[in-house]
Simulated assay, not measured.
Amino acid sequence: MSSTALAVSTGFMALCCGLACIGRQLTAKFLKPGLVQELFYEAIASAEMCAVCFELIIVADNFGVATYSVYLFFLTIWWARVWGNASACPYTHMEDMIEGNTSPRVVALKTWAQIMGGCCVYRFVQVFWWFEFVETHENRAFEDCTADLQVDPYLGAVIEGLATLLCRLASRALAELGPKHATIIDSFVGTSLVVAAFNYSGGYFNPVLATGLKWGCSGHTNLEHIIVYWIGACVGAIASVPVFKVKYVHDLLVGEPTDSIKDKTD
């Protein structure tokens, strides 16, 4: 494939990120801080993520998983810096609810906002593909999509769940340790796990992303989609809350408390 095609894909992803930044600025200007503003931030982040990842599918199909992973690595770092408190992912709010930091109502509303943003943005992507500026976009606007799930749905749910658990444990450990390049490390861990699961479940680890990109695609039923990408990922994320508190796991990821080390030396 030509470098022009990759440049067009890169430009489109940059356009999506730029429009999302404008959307966040307008939201901050016209909406007062509060739940409504947070819902808009979640919808914008989800739309940005899904629009970019639609184009990342083009990159992966035509330029390989290695190129795809490089883009995903830097995009994850970018999103961590500009999204603020938005996550574009429902299970982060579920974790907050379990820890007593939010309510089921807020979780439901933010999940709804994420789904709306992630699913509605496809029309914008479809129009861009319809112009067929480069050969990689030919016939993509209206073609039937196929699922990325290449294994049994229950195995796929286990893969999504375990990988999400590892991602969330890594994020929690980095948040507690606070290393200088925590965002880069977190992005590397997440990207590595995505690549590892890419040829099995697709490596989504985010129910909204999976639904925005693959809901209704041939290759699995809607129920199987929910089992793999919603139940699998959410169970893995929720499990990270108690698992991280297990002393052995916590000490393994973060290290033993200073007091414990001192007691051993006395």
Rank of each mutant, 00 (worst) to 15 (best):
Q37T: 00
G161M: 02
S69W: 10
T183N: 12
L19T: 06
A173N: 09
G216D: 12
G212F: 12
A157S: 09
G34K: 02
P153T: 03
C167H: 07
T183C: 08
A233Y: 01
V189F: 12
L109K: 05
C21Q: 13
T76Q: 10
K262M: 11
F188S: 06
R168G: 03
V36Q: 07
N62W: 00
T67D: 06
R140G: 01
A237E: 03
L72W: 12
H250L: 03
G216F: 06
D61L: 10
W130A: 15
G232W: 00
A43F: 01
F133S: 11
L72N: 14
F63P: 01
V194E: 06
Y68S: 00
T67P: 01
E143L: 07
F74W: 15
M49H: 06
M49A: 07
D266G: 03
Y204H: 14
L26K: 04
L213V: 08
P153G: 05
S187Y: 04
A175P: 01
V194S: 05
D259L: 14
Q126K: 12
E48D: 13
F205S: 09
Q126G: 11
V82Q: 12
R172S: 13
D259Q: 13
V107S: 05
C50N: 14
L35K: 07
E95G: 05
F63R: 04
D144G: 02
A239E: 00
F244R: 15
G232Q: 01
F198Y: 13
T136S: 13
N206W: 03
C21S: 14
A157W: 00
W215C: 00
W230T: 01
A239M: 10
L35W: 04
I185H: 08
L223V: 14
V158F: 09
K110W: 02
V107I: 02
A170W: 11
K245I: 01
I115W: 09
K247W: 06
V246M: 13
E55Y: 07
V151I: 12
F198P: 01
I238M: 15
C167E: 07
